[in-house]
Every structure is written in structure tokens, then in C-alpha cells.
Design a protein around this nucleic acid. Structure first.
Length: 828
RNA sequence: GCCCCCGUGGCGGAAUGGUAGACGCAACGGACUUAAAAUCCGUUGACCGGUAACGGUCGUGCCCGUUCAAGUCGGGCCGGGGGCACCA
């Protein structure tokens, strides 16, 4: 049982409380059912916020982080989580990250990690690389400086090596939400197509002895080609720019624009005609112009495309802008090809649907799929292309120019290149004496740390000063939990194989792709290096919804915290001056909107059980939860009521439950209900229907509350029922459950007790009440013996006054009897 | 633009194709109390008729279909949310 471990921000928030409550319910439930449960906790302790704190407050990131861990651990305690704190790990400690360094070096050996020059978002003020999501409108999120595209040497993990396996194995992740599986599929983005080679000619029509490789998913539309285009970062573009200053300027402009989503969206499609011509692979002596275009991505496919404006909207836009030929080579089956082609070629809409090839020589008449196949066959025959599979997924760049992360264990030597730090010198520890008074990476300007001798030749060399992406730590922590004290190896293989894969993993959907995909990759990479024998780290996955709250805005337009606002009905006023405030829609609790509720305060006021119960009862766990004061009050009131029932049960005194048959009808009813509740709650907990489980528990409490204690049998039944109640709420609200259990005089703690079992015989009823419909409309109900035959159902139903009224004296046309379900009478 | 999910009372939400609205919140009425809090009891989908018990009609975003029977299945709209996004 594992929940995604938290970043130690220093403050517990409601999202944590929900996440860990859900996990704890499962952990306690499974333990009661007799499973051996491992439920550990740790800290995802590297990361940027620590450096920001250092920058803003002059605290060392390590000091800040370790203090936060201490504070947060203390905040976790009152929640009553059944965590194994003996296995606690913290990823910022060398005991943890040293293994990561070793694994990385093994990955390098295995060809799963490599170094290459790549284009990155570079913030010239902060002197660091920015992730795409840190680039807003082409500017650095913190410095506001225009982000540049720079070529930098970066380490990559070869996640694409497993692209096909990562994709096909998704089918086997049956206990993962479909949504997440789909998101991963889309992210990996497999597409089948062809690589096509276009011999290049100069403007005079003479061959330059080179071929341009492009990737396409539509080789069937090759006869509709009207241009080729390469990425501004394509080697061909760079080569041509050496002698073409206008092109060089164009490329520089493209690189300046950045690669953030927003920038790309805003950017207009632009191209630069290189003057080169590309020779069509199928049509003799036919050429198309070659452009450098800003919308062609270097990282995907071959970094170059051929444009077929008739059947790709983007190419169509480009063709219209630069006045290129548009020709139709696919027409829908049931339309007149000539008319369709004429319409398409004069319009601005590309046709991307299915159809039949036209104006395409040997492809004419073939459907799209067949035409693709035929085109690829021909390309392969004339050696100007091959069929290929392309993935959207790219290798994982893991270098970060930051301090608070795991150092990359590499030494750069002028003579030997990138040399791995020898095993005996691991871990490469982060130096503590660093300063944050200047922008950039403190490791880089540390006076001594990076200067070392080359392990290979002994000459002076320098350490790599980049650190790893913090997603690496969280890609294997689940394995570390299996043997957290292992010193020679990251974890004991046997222990890992005994515990893994994680049976139930719980966390937010925001990690649906990155963290979960990285972990799946890492597990495969660890397998390839012999660390374990496993592909998939997480057998079952559950993604919980966010915790939301209404937002409040003052008349001055400032966000207000719920703590500063008093609500009455639909209106709300500011506490300080009673001025009415605007009540906004409910949104995910966040500091920026100030709509957070402090868990500490809630726990102090109502206790952990109330907070847990409310979070479980109000919404299904996968959906967003709306935090309301009224809701937590309700949970609190219910706990009080439970306690009063426990006191009443205690006052009854210990007694055996007499034989069922000797009980009064009401007492029998409660005992039966207990069995029904055990059955229902067990099933709900198995299926993560916690809100429904709480509803059933409350229903059961209501039934107990209605029992009048007028004889010994009833008293015994009451006591019995309260005991069952305690057992059932134990995973949900463990503190009060344990108290009730003890109050009833049980010597052994509830936490060590087995989950109750229902007696199937107790669920059996001798009679059954079913609905009676006439023409599908409810007209009454009948109660008959459980195994009555259909004729009894029919005659009893037809005898109903309400039924007769609607039949109007005529015999029914048809009577449908579904035993134990319904009787539906079709009137004549 | 592409892909996915979701639309049920005043609100959160229940409901293997079979009595829609379980359970809770809020609201209202009552009991207890000098009073309040707490607690307990009751009412609460909409509309129509009836003094009343009660009776009737409509009702799960909208339209169409499948079925004896649709919140649930299929098709088409509308609205909300999420993911990806110049991926060739």
C-alpha cells in the first residue's frame, strides 16, 4: 500500500489529508482482512522550493528541507495513519541518492543513459535551463527575461528504448484508471508511416549529392506533394545559413521565439525558401521547393516534412500563404472525383478523411490503407524510403543547472571526455558551503568542489555541476521502501521481489503521465541492469480528486481566506469590517486564491476522525471534493452520536447474543442489518466506494438507534450491533472505533482484530417485495414468498386495486414477471 | 484543432436495464430548555386537484431510437471539465 510521497513544503494541506486518508483506509482494511501490509512514508526532498527559500530567506536548502520534514512528520502524527515510520526515507540524503548515482552509471554502461547536445530553453538572467512549463509567453517565469533556444550538453535517459513495451504493456495494467492509461498512450503517441528520401538539387537543377529525409504518416499522398520543409534547427538549415545571411537571420528569429506552448500557439506559420529543389521519389524529373519552416520540429521524425496541402490543413495554410500548388490525390468513395478535386483545389480546407487515391499513378483506385502500403513497398523497392514506426515520446532530459538535487556522478576530462566517478568514490555528495547571492548554479562557482583529478588519467579535470531532475528520485523510491537500510545496494532484490509491484498506489492525476511513466521506465531500466526482475512498478493505481473550496473576493478585488469570511446562506461578509464579499466558484485549494483550509486547525477543532470521515463520505474519492464547514460539522455530530451509542452499549453490560430464533422481531432485524452492513461495507471498501460505505454505516447506525431496549434480547442485539459498527468504521475513523471497542470491554485492540464476516444465511429473506408496473409505470408493490413461482407473482399483481384501475376491466395483453425484480403488465 | 470524461432535488451524491433521489448537508415545523447550544421527532423533486386522508400528471441537460421496462444501452445536439497540441 503506497501513496505518492509528499514534497516537504513544511505544511500539510488538505490534499495530503485526503490522499493519505484514502491510503490508510485501504491499509487498515487489508490488514484486518489478514494481509501482510507494508505502508511506508518518505519525503521527495530535492527540488526548487528549497532553493527559493535559500534565495529569499538566506536559509540553506538542506536546513530548510530537514526542518520541514520534522514539522510535517509532526503534523502527520495526529491523523492516525497506520504508517511504518521505521522505513522512512528522505531523497536528499546521500544514503539515498548515492544509489541513484550508481544506477545512473549502470544505465550509462547499458546504453540507457547518454549525453548529447540538445536545444533547451535558456534563461539568460538566471543562467539556467528552464522546463517548458516554466516558460510563459516566451519569457522566464521568474526573471521575465526573453528565453532563448540554446544548444547544451545534457544527459538523457533512453525512455524511447522501451517505447513499444511501455505502450503495449498498458493493456496489462488492468487496475489502472482508463483515463491514465489513455493519457499514457497518447503521450507515447505511436504512429506508423514512412521515411522518404528526396534527392536534393541546387537552384540550377544540379544534384548536390545529398538526400533529404522526411517522415510522413501519409505516404499515400506523395503525389500531392508541393514542397518540403525542414526545421530551423535542422543541420541542412544550419549549413545553408553559413552562406545565406537572410536565412541565418530567419533561423535566429525562430530560435528566439522559444518552444513554450503559448509561443507556438501564437506563432504564425513562416517559411523561408532555400532555393533548393527536392526530387520527387516517384515522379521523374519532378521537383518541389525546399523551405525552412518554423513549424517543423527537429525532435520529431526526421526534423523535416513534405507538404501535401490537399490533405493536411497545416500544409494547406502554408501553401496558400506562399502560393504553392494544391492538388487533390484522395477523394471520398461516394463522390465524383473530378468535382471533389476541383472544389478542394480551389478552397482552403484540406481533406483528411478516408477515401480512394486519385491522380496518383500506380496508387489510383486504392483505399488509403492499401495506398500507404503500396507506396511504402515501392519506396523500399527503389531504395528511397522505408516503412517505419514513430513515437511522440522523446528521451528524458535529466540535467538541471541547479544546486538542490542529486549530483550527476561524472567527471569531465579534456583528454578522456566524460568519465564516470568510480564506485569507490560514490556518493558524490553535495557540498554544504554554497552561496545563493548570485544567479546561476552555486555548484558551478564553488571554489573547490568541482576541481578533481580525472579518475582515468589523473590529470586535472572538473566535475559535472548539473544535478538530476527530481523526477528521478521518485522513479525508484517505492523499491527503496522494501529495504530502506540497504547500504551496498539500492535495495535488496529479494525484498523488492517479495513486495513489488505495489498492490495499490494512490495519488493525484496530475502525475498521470510524467511520474508514472518515468517510474515504469525506471523499473524496466533497473531490470535491464539486474536490480530486480520486474517491469511494472504499480499493479493497482487509484487517482483521487482535488480538494476544492469556494473563493472569496473583497470589494477591493483581493482574494480572501475562508477563515476571514463568515457565510450565512448565499451571502458572505468579511469578518474584519462586515463588508459583503463576492462568493466565487469552487476551485482547487491554492495559496494564490487563498481558498485553503488549514488541516491543523480542523484537526484541533474536530479531531482527525471527523476530518477523515467527511473526506470519505462526501464525494466518491476519484472526484473533486468540495470542502464545506457544514460537512465537517455533520461528520463531527455523527461521531458524537456514535459515542453516545457506545455509552449506551457499555451501560447494558457484557452479555452473549442469544440464539437468533429467540430474539424479538426488532432485535432480529438489527442483527440481520449487521450482517447486511458487513457484507455491503466490505464490498464497498474493496471497490473504493468509500462514500457509499459511510452511507451504509450510517444507515446501520440509524437502525441501531431505532431499536428499543425493552428486553434482554434487544439489549444483547444492541451491544452486538455497536460492536460490529466499531469494526466497520475502524478503517474510516480509527480513533473512535478503537475507543468504542475498548468501551465494550474487548481486551485485544481493534487494530489487531480480524475483519468481521457476514453470515450469508442472515441476508436471506423469506419474502420479497417487488414493484408492479402497468405499461412501465409504477402502480403498486406486492410482497410474495421468495421462491414463489411466476403464476403467484402474476395473480397477486393482477389482484392489486391500482392495477385493475389501469386495465379498465380488460385482460392484460402480456405480463412480464422477473422473479425478485419486477412485474410489468402490458395493458390491452 | 484532436482525444477523453461528466450533466440526477436548494447542495454533495445513491441507484447489477427493473419502485429514481439511498446516505448526508441545508431549510422549515415541532419537542426539550427561563433562554441558547446540544439532542430528539417530523416535513422537504416540481406541478395540478382536495379542508383532509389522499389522488393525479410530469421529472435524471435537449431530441430521436432500442426494450415489456432507459438515469443506465445506441445515434445526434447543447453545456461543463480535463488531457494533448504546428507530432507531419
Amino acid at each position: 500500500m503506497l501513496e505518492m510521497f509528499p514534497y516537504p513544503s513544511g505544511r500539510l494541506h488538505m490534499g495530503h489529508v485526503r490522499n493519505y486518508t484514502l491510503g490508510d483506509v485501504v491499509a487498515r482494511f487489508k490488514k484486518a482482512q489478514g494481509h501482510n501490509v507494508l505502508h511506508p512514508m518518505g519525503w521527495d526532498a530535492f527540488g526548487l522550493p528549497a532553493e527559493n527559500a535559500a534565495l529569499e530567506r538566506g536559509i540553506h536548502p538542506g536546513t530548510w528541507t530537514r526542518q520541514n520534514i520534522k514539522d510535517m512528520r509532526a503534523q502527520f502524527m495526529p491523523l492516525g495513519l497506520s504508517l511504518d515510520w521505521e522505513r522512512e526515507i528522505s531523497t536528499c540524503e546521500p544514503e539515498y541518492y548515492r544509489h541513484e548515482q550508481k544506477m545512473f552509471l549502470d544505465f550509462v554502461k547499458a546504453g540507457l543513459a547518454y549525453r548529447k547536445e540538445s536545444w533547451v530553453n535558456w534563461d539568460p538572467v538566471e543562467n539556467t535551463v528552464l522546463a517548458n512549463e516554466q516558460v510563459i509567453d516566451g519569457k522566464g517565469w521568474r526573471s521575465g527575461a526573453v528565453v532563448e533556444q540554446r544548444k547544451l550538453n545534457q544527459w538523457f535517459l533512453k525512455i524511447t528504448h522501451f517505447a513499444e513495451d511501455l505502450l503495449t504493456s498498458i493493456d496489462g495494467l488492468e487496475r489502472w484508471p482508463d483515463k491514465v492509461r489513455l493519457m499514457q498512450q497518447n503521450w507515447i503517441g505511436r504512429s506508423e508511416g514512412a521515411r522518404v528520401l528526396w534527392p536534393l538539387l541546387d537552384s540550377a537543377g544540379k544534384g548536390i549529392g545529398e538526400k533529404l529525409e522526411v517522415f510522413t504518416t501519409r505516404p499515400d499522398t506523395l503525389f500531392g506533394a508541393s514542397f518540403c520543409a525542414v526545421s530551423p534547427q535542422h543541420p541542412l538549415a544550419a549549413k545553408l545559413a553559413e552562406t545565406d545571411t537572410a536565412l541565418a537571420a530567419f533561423i535566429a528569429e525562430c530560435n528566439k521565439a522559444g518552444t513554450s506552448t503559448a509561443t507556438i500557439e501564437a506563432a504564425e506559420k513562416k517559411g523561408y525558401d532555400t532555393g533548393l529543389q527536392a526530387l520527387h521519389p516517384f515522379i521523374e524529373k519532378w521537383t518541389v521547393p525546399v523551405y525552412v519552416a518554423n513549424f517543423v520540429l527537429m525532435e520529431y521524425g526526421a526534423g523535416a516534412i513534405f507538404g501535401c496541402p490537399g490533405h493536411d490543413q497545416r500544409d494547406m495554410d502554408f501553401a496558400r500563404k506562399y502560393d504553392l500548388r494544391v492538388s487533390c490525390v484522395v477523394a471520398p468513395k461516394n463522390e465524383d472525383a473530378k468535382d471533389f478535386a476541383a472544389k478542394l483545389e480551389s478552397g482552403n480546407e484540406a481533406f483528411t478523411g478516408d477515401g480512394v487515391a486519385i491522380n496518383s499513378d500506380f496508387l489510383d483506385g486504392l483505399a488509403v490503407t492499401e495506398a500507404k502500403r503500396a507506396a511504402i513497398a515501392k519506396l523500399e523497392k527503389i531504395k528511397l524510403g522505408t516503412g517505419t514506426v514513430q513515437y511522440r515520446l522523446r528521451d528524458w532530459g535529466v540535467s538541471r543547472q541547479r544546486y538542490w538535487g542529486c549530483p550527476v556522478p561524472i567527471i569531465h576530462c579534456e583528454g578522456c571526455g566524460a568519465v564516470p566517478v568510480p564506485d569507490k568514490d560514490l556518493p558524490v555528495k553535495l557540498p554544504d558551503d554554497v552561496t545563493f547571492d548570485k544567479p546561476g548554479n552555486p555548484l558551478d562557482r564553488h571554489p573547490t568542489w568541482k576541481h578533481v583529478d580525472c579518475p582515468a588519467c589523473g590529470k586535472t579535470a572538473v566535475r559535472e555541476t548539473d544535478t538530476f531532475d527530481t523526477f528521478i528520485e521518485s522513479s525508484w523510491y517505492f523499491a527503496r521502501f522494501c529495504s530502506p537500510d540497504s547500504t551496498d545496494k539500492p535495495f535488496d532484490k529479494k525484498a523488492a521481489m517479495a513486495w513489488l509491484p505495489v498492490d495499490q498506489y494512490i495519488g493525484g492525476v496530475e502525475h498521470a503521465v510524467l511520474h508514472l511513466l518515468y517510474s515504469r521506465f525506471f523499473t524496466r531500466a533497473m531490470q535491464a541492469c539486474g536490480y530486480l526482475d520486474l517491469k511494472e512498478p504499480f499493479g493497482g493505481l487509484f487517482t483521487q480528486g482535488m480538494v476544492c473550496h469556494e473563493t472569496y473576493k473583497s470589494p477591493e478585488g483581493q482574494w480572501l481566506s475562508p477563515a476571514d469570511v463568515t457565510k450565512s446562506g448565499e451571502t458572505a461578509v468579511r469578518n474584519a469590517d462586515k463588508v459583503p464579499v463576492t462568493v466565487g466558484r469552487s476551485e482547487k485549494m491554492s495559496k494564490s486564491k487563498k481558498n485553503t483550509v488549514d488541516p491543523q486547525h480542523i484537526i484541533d477543532t474536530y479531531g482527525a476522525d471527523a476530518a477523515r470521515l467527511f473526506m470519505l463520505s462526501d464525494s466518491p474519492p476519484e472526484r473533486d471534493l468540495e470542502w464545506t464547514d457544514a460537512g465537517i460539522e455533520g461528520a463531527w455530530r455523527y461521531l458524537n452520536r456514535l459515542w453516545r451509542m457506545a455509552a449506551a452499549a457499555r451501560d447494558i453490560g457484557a452479555r452473549e447474543l442469544p440464539a437468533f430464533a429467540s430474539l424479538s422481531g426488532n432485535a432480529q432485524g438489527v442483527v440481520r442489518h449487521a450482517h447486511r452492513a458487513i457484507h455491503g461495507v466490505t464490498e464497498d471498501l474493496e471497490k473504493f466506494r468509500f462514500n457509499s460505505a459511510v452511507a451504509k454505516v450510517r444507515e446501520f447506525s440509524n437502525a441501531i438507534g431505532e431499536l428499543t431496549l425493552d428486553d434482554d434480547g434487544a439489549k444483547a442485539a444492541y451491544r452486538f450491533a455497536v460492536g460490529v459498527l466499531a469494526q466497520l468504521i475502524n478503517p474510516l475513523a480509527p480513533h473512535i472505533a478503537e475507543e468504542i471497542w475498548a468501551t465494550l470491554g474487548n481486551a485485544n485492540p481493534l487494530v489487531d482484530s480480524a475483519w468481521p464476516k457476514h453470515d450469508p444465511a442472515m441476508l436471506e429473506e423469506s419474502t420479497v417485495t417487488v414493484a408492479v408496473q402497468v405499461n412501465g409505470k409504477l402502480r403498486g408493490t406486492i410482497t410474495v414468498a421468495k421462491n414463489a413461482d411466476k403464476a403467484i407473482y402474476e395473480s397477486t399483481a393482477l389482484a392489486l386495486e391500482g392495477v385493475q384501475k389501469y386495465l379498465g376491466g380488460k385482460p392484460p395483453r402480456k405480463v412480464i414477471v422477473v422473479p425478485e425484480k419486477i412485474v410489468n403488465i402490458v395493458a390491452a
